[in-house]
Design a binder for these strands. Structure first.
Ligand code: FES
Ligand code: FES
Lengths: 149, 149
DNA sequence: TTAAACTTGACTAAAATAGTCGGAATTACT
DNA sequence: AGTAATTCCGACTATTTTAGTCAAGTTTAA
């Protein structure tokens, strides 16, 4: 998935929301103030996140947002995919018969991009909102990795 | 490091160069034709890669480029850093006293971005050109990772 | 009735991307 | 000496993407 400021704001806001407790309705203006994000921008983001089914909303006075699922069941890639395009590391399109060089075969680097993509994806799908809120941000994958070095 | 088409082209071209054999001088026009990359664009990229010390050049007729070091000693991040800006996952600047929310403390997601960055960096620095050319594209880190799941 | 809050789609300024272009310098070959 | 091949260089630009803004709603609690 793409890594932009938009995605970062989405994760920050969702982390804030998760940190406010489970069932309470939190108005966006609170999150905007705490995280110093423009309210209009947050509205745009939360619209997309809601359509992705990660949060539910209550309109009107005393309304707000709350997580649709438990924080431990919401992974980072879900959030980022809700607001940004998926990352595209390959130069070729999967449906096209030919690779990125125009020939019919895959280029030398094709597998590399796939490996990179799955490497990043493994991180993003393994970290949940609950992990971030708890400061338990290094999943076992990374721990193993760093221990091996 | 940033992941753009520019970086992808740089890696493709360097992989091509590495695949042509160790000591030979390869003109850019050959690589451009094989990889279907614009020659002007390649020139721009190779200029930067040379300045980074990864390749050496010979001007004039029968000139070209060759790797400065062994393919096994050139990692992906070196190539990508040569042509693109480093990736920036954090919202805050390291030198600034305050975090991305304006307060003096780090935001809830600060450590997350650091972990993500090191996770991606570990991949990029562990894969070498020799790995890519040999199709040995999955480093032990990824193997370990997938085995652990 | 009013104010707080979400909902929507369209709009935009600025930045980044993905190159192009024109020419200059260097070297091998004849 | 001349020519063709090739690297080297800086500046330029069209397009796309980013990071928002804006105006006008709708819904609900008090
Ligand atoms: S990336 Fe798929 S063929 Fe080059
Ligand atoms: S990313 Fe460093 S303080 Fe938010």
């Amino acid at each position: 998935m793409k890594l932009t400021a938009k995605g970062r704001y989405a994760v920050m806001a969702m982390t804030d929301l998760a940190a406010q407790g489970a069932g309470a309705l939190i108005p966006l203006s609170d999150i905007a103030a705490r995280q110093k994000i423009s309210l209009s921008f947050l509205e745009q983001l939360f619209r997309q996140i809601r359509r992705a089914g990660l949060i539910e909303s209550q309109r009107g006075a005393k309304g707000g947002y709350r997580l649709e699922q438990a924080a431990a069941d919401i992974s980072l890639d879900q959030i980022i995919l809700a607001v940004d395009e998926p990352i595209k590391t390959h130069g070729c399109t999967p449906e096209a018969r030919h690779g990125c060089t125009g020939s019919s075969e895959r280029c030398l680097t094709h597998d590399l991009w796939g490996a990179l993509e799955s490497h990043i994806g493994a991180f993003m799908s393994s970290v949940t909102l609950a992990d971030v809120v708890a400061g338990r941000v290094t999943p076992s994958i990374v721990l193993d990795m760093e221990a091996a070095e």
